[in-house]
Nucleic acid binder design. Structure first.
Lengths: 197, 197
DNA sequence: TTTAGACTAATATCGTTTTTTAGTCTAAAA
DNA sequence: TTTTAGACTAAAAAACGATATTAGTCTAAA
């Protein structure tokens, strides 16, 4: 029941996979770096792929967790939307392996890995969905089809996510994201505006 | 001055590159399929890369042209935004090589090719920009920073573009796109709504 | 339980040979 | 003049076999 062993293995694996990728990282190296026997890794995870998938799974969970926390800090649905967007982009940075996953096009990598990626997307949409639902219930948002709207916003945010991998300047992302949330709030045709940049 | 030769070469090249990619397509094949001598291709284009880049350039131009036309058909700025989104996704389908370009992650391909891709993005943003500008001038859109808003919308649409490569069902895209434009118009906080799905 | 380490079978790497292909050239045909 | 077929070269890619790594197993000791 030495949980710390598994912990140590996964932390090391996360770093190594993040730096060198799935192929170029060997279990012998991970074992050496994590100061455990290779057999121990097999005891816990059974295969190299499952170590990798577990790393991805934890990254996804961590992101969802952190986003949920940030959203939970806010009270007003509007603030929650903004918190969501900010948190997502801030914490995505730490999910190196998930990030590399769609930098590499996903193709060659395990199908399971892609499903974790798309599951993350759906969980994000779920969070957006519940924010929107709350907003509608409170009478501050007006939407015909909440799940559809959530999904659309989710897709829109993906555009930033993927471009951001190339773009380096964090400020640019901030600006654009602010403008997008602004539009999402008030639309193009409303006179109401939040504080301008 | 036999323009038709160049035309034939480019049409054939577009098909072959689209089907087999840059690497797996040989100039000998293109020459054979286009019923011209290989030397003729070199007369016109000078190198294989330049043939490929010319194909990309034409695809980009065609898209911009078709989008501009579709947008031009509409009078109201709101309709123009919708026309833009629809046209973009409809005609992107035909730009096979540009599409493959970011399916393959762009990495391995020529740097010039990427610049054509990002140039296309900027031209699209320019179109959106002028639509928004017109809307603001006519008093139907309200925006602090038009270019920023245009860029944000452009990024948002990229999210669909990239996801759509994986998703097969065209209808889904339609639905989501409709919802997104709806949000972009009226925002989350406005009671005004267009006809619902 | 964990460990070090030996072990195997599959996979990847590497260096070499062979083939393909981008790009050039020429002389004839259009 | 321009285009063509085809020969040609140099460079890159594919094929291939030999070598080395590495995923995964097993064992006996700690």
């Amino acid at each position: 029941m030495k949980e710390e062993k598994a912990e140590s293995i996964l932390n090391t694996a996360k770093k190594m996979f993040g730096r060198y990728g799935l192929q170029k990282t060997t279990l012998d190296e991970i074992a050496r770096m994590a100061r455990v026997a290779k057999a121990t890794i097999y005891n816990y995870f059974g295969s190299k792929d499952r170590v990798y998938l577990e790393v991805l799974r934890r990254e996804a969970n961590e992101i969802v967790e952190k986003i949920s926390f940030s959203v939970g800090q806010e009270v007003l649905p509007g603030d929650k939307v903004i918190a969501f967007a900010r948190a997502k982009f801030q914490y995505m940075r730490q999910a190196i392996n998930i990030l590399n996953l769609d930098r590499d096009g996903i193709e060659k990598v395990l199908p399971k890995a892609e499903s974790i990626r798309s599951e993350l997307f759906e969980r994000e949409v779920d969070i957006i969905c519940s924010i929107l639902e709350e907003g509608v219930k409170k009478g501050v948002f007006y939407l015909n089809n909440v799940p559809l709207a959530a999904s659309a916003i989710g897709h829109a945010l993906r555009g930033f996510e993927l471009n951001w991998l190339v773009q380096e300047n964090e400020e640019q992302i901030e600006y654009h994201l602010d403008e997008l949330t602004n539009i999402i709030f008030y639309g193009l045709v409303s006179e109401k505006r939040s504080a301008n940049a």
